Amino acid sequence: MKKQWTLLAAAAMLALSGCGGNGNDGGNTQGHTATAVTTEQGDTAHMNHSTSSELPEGMKEAVNPKFNIGSEAIMKTNHMPGMDGAVATIAGAYETTAYSISYTPVTGGERVTDHKWIVQEEIKDAKASPYESGADITVTADHMPGMKGAVATIDSAEPTTVYMVDYTPTTGGDPVHNHKWVTESELAPVK
């Protein structure tokens, strides 16, 4: 029983520390991304609020996106709790290829599987054409602890418009600003 409480306390501390940010963001939560990692004990938790609002070098704004900057859309995805069904305000729209990846954090720990999303411009020395499923790449994105510099395997690739969005989680809590990334297929018009 003591071991279970110790594991529970450790998981809670990990989850809380991942949500803290570094205090340099002026109160904004940027690039809010989460991925569930299942341990052998069955716990799931792996969340981070990236503090960078910078775009990767080479990002190209979408010329005619389905959702314009400043408009609202309903999110139909659950990269993290409270996203599915939340009303998002579009903060940016970019043409690229979005990738779902699996990787082991450079900081150690459990392998992260099916992390959605990184984009073509977040791959070290990216080639001009999209990568195929199964390709190994080096990640330059810093969405999660231990992601930057990790060697990842591409699970899927989707040429699409990706959106940076602001939203308030349906589960409550502080508004999230500049979440990177939501694909066009994960958004629906507000009715």
Rank of each mutant, 00 (worst) to 15 (best):
M1W: 08
K2W: 08
K3V: 13
Q4N: 13
Q4F: 11
W5H: 11
T6M: 15
T6S: 15
G18T: 07
C19A: 15
G20F: 09
G20R: 13
G20L: 13
G23D: 11
N24D: 10
N24H: 13
G27T: 04
G27Y: 09
N28E: 13
T29F: 11
T33V: 14
A36S: 13
A36Y: 12
V37E: 08
T38L: 10
Q41S: 15
Q41T: 15
T44V: 14
H46L: 15
S50Q: 14
S50E: 14
E54H: 10
P56Y: 05
P56T: 06
E61D: 12
A62Y: 00
A62M: 04
P65E: 01
P65C: 06
N68I: 00
I69F: 01
S71F: 03
E72S: 02
A73T: 00
M75L: 03
M75C: 04
T77E: 12
N78D: 09
N78R: 00
N78I: 00
P81T: 11
M83E: 12
D84A: 14
A88W: 00
A88E: 00
I90F: 02
A91W: 04
A93N: 01
Y94T: 05
Y94I: 07
E95D: 13
T97A: 05
A98M: 06
S100F: 02
I101D: 05
I101T: 00
S102G: 02
Y103R: 04
T107S: 00
G108H: 09
G108K: 08
G109M: 04
G109A: 07
E110I: 12
E110N: 10
E110D: 10
V112Q: 03
V112I: 08
D114F: 11
I118H: 01
V119T: 11
Q120S: 07
Q120R: 10
E122K: 03
E122F: 05
I123M: 08
D125N: 13
D125G: 07
D125Q: 09
A126C: 12
A128Y: 08
A128G: 09
S129D: 11
S129Y: 07
G134M: 00
G134K: 00
A135C: 07
D136Q: 13
I137D: 05
T140W: 08
A141C: 12
H143G: 08
M144H: 11
G146F: 02
M147K: 09
K148S: 15
V151N: 14
A152T: 02
E158K: 06
P159R: 00
T161G: 03
V162Q: 02
D166K: 04
Y167N: 06
P169Q: 12
P169C: 11
T170Q: 03
G172F: 02
G173I: 05
G173W: 08
G173L: 05
V176D: 15
H179P: 07
K180R: 09
E186N: 01
K191V: 10
K191N: 12
